[in-house]
Simulated assay, not measured.
Amino acid sequence: MKIAGAGIQPVSSFHKIRLFVVIRVSVLHEAEGTTMIKELTNETEWLEGYPVMHELRTHLDQDAYLACLRTMREEGYTLLALYEQDEIAALAGIGILTNFYFGRHVFIYDLVTKSSMRSKGYGNELLAHVHRYAKESGCGIVALGSGLANLDAHRFYETKMGYEKTAYSFICRV
């Protein structure tokens, strides 16, 4: 696997009520094959990622996706893509944060594998890359939020990736 990366800065985001899961960073084995992970850094690449992100964020049309992504990038959001051959198979949107309860950590805001490419290990491979990045960046934890109804994702995080449920996240619309 080839890996291309860049720095990650703090980012903020609002979500519906979510189940909060955390993993302490540990070294994971790199998958072999014809995949490459790289940061998407410009609008051409972001547009290439839109159909995959839209599977997760169905409420966003292409214009709203680009507008939001521009703002999020200014706030430190990084969008990583796992390619199989020349096709995006999975995306992860991440940022590095520091707070009292996790210390310095990577937060995963978005994680999605293209529906036609699921169950092939791409999510595992992309998360393993994020875990390595976190460790290399001095983070001891990778955290993420997942919708309460997304039981398949919860099972994946807990049984395949070693995450543990630690809290609920709440929002209040003002």
Rank of each mutant, 00 (worst) to 15 (best):
I3W: 04
G5R: 06
G7W: 03
Q9E: 15
P10Q: 02
V11E: 07
V11L: 05
S12K: 08
S13Y: 15
H15Y: 13
H15T: 15
K16Q: 13
R18M: 11
V25K: 02
V25Y: 01
S26G: 10
V27I: 06
A31C: 08
G33F: 02
T34K: 09
I37C: 08
K38S: 11
K38Q: 14
E39Y: 02
L40P: 05
T41P: 00
T41L: 12
N42D: 14
N42G: 11
T44I: 13
W46N: 10
Y50G: 07
M53P: 06
H54C: 02
E55G: 05
R57K: 07
H59D: 09
L60I: 07
L66M: 07
A67R: 14
C68R: 14
L69T: 14
L69Y: 00
L69R: 04
R70F: 07
T71M: 08
T71G: 13
M72G: 06
G76M: 03
G76Q: 03
G76A: 06
G76I: 02
Y77I: 08
T78Y: 01
T78P: 01
L80T: 09
A81H: 03
Y83I: 08
Y83H: 10
I88H: 07
I88M: 11
I88C: 06
A90D: 04
L91D: 05
L91N: 06
G93V: 12
G93K: 07
G93P: 12
G93S: 05
I94D: 07
I94M: 01
G95K: 05
F102V: 02
G103A: 09
R104H: 04
H105Y: 03
H105K: 03
F107D: 09
I108K: 00
I108Y: 01
Y109T: 12
Y109G: 14
D110P: 08
R118K: 06
G121F: 05
G123I: 06
G123C: 02
N124Y: 07
L126S: 07
A128E: 05
A128T: 04
H129C: 15
V130W: 01
R132K: 10
C139I: 10
G140A: 09
A143M: 03
S146R: 02
L148K: 13
L148W: 07
L151N: 03
T159V: 10
T159I: 01
K160N: 07
M161S: 12
G162Y: 04
Y163G: 04
E164V: 14
E164L: 04
K165N: 01
K165H: 10
I171K: 09
I171D: 13
